[in-house]
Design a binder for these strands. Structure first.
Ligand SMILES: [Mn+2]
Ligand SMILES: [Mn+2]
Ligand SMILES: [Zn+2]
Ligand SMILES: [Zn+2]
Lengths: 149, 149
DNA sequence: GATGAAATTGAATTTCAATTTCAATATTGA
DNA sequence: TCAATATTGAAATTGAAATTCAATTTCATC
């Protein structure tokens, strides 16, 4: 359970482990990821309707600070959160038709970035890379639709 | 002058070429790029204070629609605009210390993306890629600072 | 277990950029 | 010139993010 890591990190920061935080953490960590605050809140409310929207907001911010969550802002402007997969970095393919978000990891891409940064004498802290387009499923549907007409 | 292209595109869309739009276009096209609306408005207001903020907002939205401007949202969340460089796509290196934005083009990166997309049977429409970190100048300053202490 | 300083909670409020409204004005094709 | 239609700009609205504050909870210490 990541509850232990959570408690450790939380006390490291001089903060307090509350029922609400634990409950939100458990729900969030087992969720599907890439959800916005309203979606996470809805899940929390289903299990414990006493927990306020503000607390969910603040807890996600806290989890991000603790390194347990990652905040994402894709081109649609919505703020989303996903459980942080420790160590590994990944990027995203985003379907403009159905909204599906596909994750990928590519070591060559990382190496290439190092080259770009070096040429500009730039020290990389982190990066963001997203590919927008049409997923396989949606593409198939489109072809079907065209054939019928 | 891009004024001609602007007039053509504008009438293609059944819209009207107004003094305000032309004035905003001229100021924007010769600007340094990566500016937010408040900054663009400030420039416009210096030359013609009669033009309203709303008009600048709507004109930048229009220019984006016409393909003459590109809207950018980097990680700081600010909405910025830059004149669209026809044909060529570029990405950005962003200094977290001074805010400097460096543009780069890399064909290998584009090729690599095609490979990633193909492996996921994904049809690319466009992409976004930003590298965050520390620019040469800021890095130099940091080293200097450390030496003095 | 009791205590209390400090942190947290949650409803309500505020902030602030983005967007919309609407009456007055400008543009354009006939 | 003359409408029909689009645009303008001040003001109002929206909505997500962030803050406020009184009530409540946590937890180190006793
Ligand atoms: Mn992800
Ligand atoms: Mn640029
Ligand atoms: Zn899809
Ligand atoms: Zn810098």
């Amino acid at each position: 359970m990541e509850t232990d890591l959570f408690k450790t990190r939380i006390s490291e920061e001089g903060l307090k482990a509350t029922k609400q935080r634990e409950e939100i953490l458990n729900i969030f960590m087992t969720s599907s990821g890439h959800q916005n605050l309203a979606q996470i809140y809805a899940q929390v409310a289903k299990i414990n309707p006493k927990i306020g929207y503000t607390t969910v907001y603040r807890t996600l911010k806290l989890l991000t600070h603790l390194g347990l969550a990652t905040q994402r802002k894709f081109a649609d402007g919505e703020t989303r959160y996903e459980p942080a997969s420790e160590g590994s970095h990944h990027d995203h393919l985003i379907c403009l038709d159905c909204g599906k978000i596909i994750e990928f990891e590519d070591q060559t891409l990382e190496t290439l970035q190092n080259g770009i940064a070096r040429r500009h004498r730039f020290k990389i802290s982190h990066h963001r890379m997203e590919i927008y387009g049409c997923c396989e499923e949606c593409h198939r549907k489109k072809r079907m639709g065209r054939r019928k007409s």
